[in-house]
């Protein structure tokens, strides 16, 4: 067992753990924004680490795996950003348990909530 195989195996195990935690977060978190951040961050790191591990195991694939990692690093956060923004615009607001609701939701200043929009009109 060469050192490259050991590094690759460790990276694949780290990636699998992060992917599992991401799946658990999507199941466990209370509202869509928490689920998105659990899903996005964990699966981005998990998939990147897993692909890099495969690149270490098969050294001839390392260039392809680096290109894939760059692609994931761009596409995954952008898509989840677009999802979260569209959700907010459609009127699903974050679940806030604290009493200080106005200061917790800072995005409200940029995009007012639907009810306030109607009041202004």
């Amino acid at each position: 067992m060469s050192i490259m195989e050991i590094i690759g195996g460790i990276l694949i195990i780290i990636g699998s753990i992060f992917l599992f935690l991401g799946a658990l977060g999507i199941y466990r978190m209370p509202d869509i924004y928490n689920r998105l951040q659990a899903g996005t961050k964990a699966t981005t790191l998990g998939a990147m680490s897993l692909i890099l591990g495969v690149g270490f195991l098969e050294p001839s694939w390392i260039l392809k795996s680096l290109v894939l990692i760059i692609f994931i690093a761009f596409s995954n956060p952008i898509s989840s950003h677009a999802l979260a923004r569209a959700t907010y615009r459609r009127g699903h607001y974050p679940l806030i348990l604290s009493d200080d609701k106005e200061n917790m939701d800072a995005y409200q200043e940029v995009v007012p909530h639907e009810k306030e929009k109607e009041e202004k009109v």
């Binding site: 692609f71 761009f74 596409s75 952008i78 950003h81 677009a82 923004r85 615009r89």
Partner: peptide, 14 residues
């Protein structure tokens, strides 16, 4: 509504 600047510049790259 139009897409945000993150999406527009990101899609140019992708």
């Amino acid at each position: 509504f139009s897409a945000s600047s993150i999406v527009t510049s990101g899609s140019k790259l992708l």
